[in-house]
């Protein structure tokens, strides 16, 4: 200390601390600019993390987050040992995996078809039209599904009846509801998912295709030996990213589509958290389940990132 005071350094040779302060001061405009955004993250992203402690408390609105009594892991135990735990996990995982396994191949095939088509106009129109539904609200898609699926006037049911079958109430039939969720997701998102694969295809060097053509490869062979390997990294990355979000089965979609008759096959973690927390005022229990989901999500995404770094040569974030 005395040393520093005795030999006050010239401006050019200041102590590291002074240099840092000078750098901070020089950037004061940028820090000022950051302030509103950081305040937003503090209020709307980090304050909730602080509030998450009510997962370990018996939250009483009057006492507030801080003064509610601690109860340890009581809510977690109540959730894991309850009868709805296995149902929620099953529904969440079945819907999520089905969306991934049934939804990804069409996106890959669509990208390949758009890339291979000799009619550029058709390819462009298909691309534009298929990613339009991505921008529609799930409420709008709900309306479209009513038009297609309602037992009386739905187009699909008219077809079923015309073919000699019986109409099906797809949206309220537990046997059909998951299929509605999965296929409406495919209708809405396939075009959008195809964009990433298409970008990978466009990135493949044309000389590879030319060389293959010279060697006498058929179109199928070119897809198998050039296009698919060229997309592999992106396919791996997208799959891993989806696996990282495996407990997000699509809250908005299910929230707007489901109803009491199909809860047994449609209720997922997020919809349950909403009903328990907001509608039944079980704030602590719902937070515990939300926290459980958040932690699994974090774990999955970290693992996925590791795997991506190893197999695709680049991380997810």
């Amino acid at each position: 200390m005395t040393n520093v005071i005795r030999s006050a350094p010239p401006a050019a040779r200041r102590s590291p601390r002074q240099r840092l302060l000078a750098r901070l001061w020089r950037h004061r405009g940028l820090y000022l600019m950051l302030l509103p955004g950081l305040l937003w993250f503090a209020l709307f992203r980090y304050w909730p993390l602080w509030n998450a402690q009510i997962a370990f408390k018996d939250f009483q609105p009057v006492q507030g987050v801080l003064h509610s009594p601690w109860v340890g892991l009581e809510h977690f135990q109540a959730f894991f040992s309850s009868f709805y735990f296995s149902q929620l996990m099953t529904n969440t995982l079945v819907i999520s995996f089905a969306k991934l396994l049934i939804g990804l191949p069409p996106a890959i095939i669509l990208a390949l078809a758009i890339h291979e088509s000799s009619r550029r106009g058709l390819a462009r129109v298909t691309q534009t039209v298929t990613y339009l539904p991505h921008f529609l609200s799930w409420v709008i898609v709900f309306g479209i599904l009513l038009a297609m699926l309602s037992p009386g006037s739905g187009l699909l049911n008219k077809g079923l009846v015309a073919a000699g079958g019986d109409p099906v109430s797809f949206l309220t039939d537990p046997g059909a509801f998951r299929a509605v969720v999965i296929f409406s997701d495919i209708w809405k998102e396939t075009g959008w998912s195809a964009i990433l694969f298409l970008a990978a295809l466009i990135g493949i060097s044309p000389s590879l295709y030319e060389a293959a053509e010279v060697d006498g490869a058929t179109r199928w062979q070119r897809i198998r030996h050039i296009s698919l390997p060229g997309m592999l990294d992106v396919i791996v990355l997208v799959t891993l990213l989806r696996l990282g979000h495996i407990l997000d089965a699509g809250f908005y979609q299910i929230y707007v589509l489901y109803s009491l008759p199909v809860y047994s096959v449609a209720d997922v973690i997020d919809t349950w958290v909403y009903r328990q927390g907001i509608q039944n005022f079980q704030f602590s229990l719902a937070t515990a389940v939300g926290l459980f989901k958040g932690l699994i999500g974090l774990l999955m995404i970290v693992i996925a990132n590791r795997v991506a770094r190893r197999f695709a040569g680049q991380g997810l974030y």
């Binding site: 993250f41 909730p48 509030n51 704030f283 719902a286 939300g290 999500g297 974030y317």
Partner: peptide, 22 residues
């Protein structure tokens, strides 16, 4: 550091209820 602080909120969330309380 600040980018990390922001990125973390992308990877981990405590869910609906804690934000509702905010």
């Amino acid at each position: 550091f600040l980018t990390g602080v922001i990125l973390f909120t992308f990877l981990f969330s405590a869910g609906l209820i804690p934000l509702y309380l905010v």
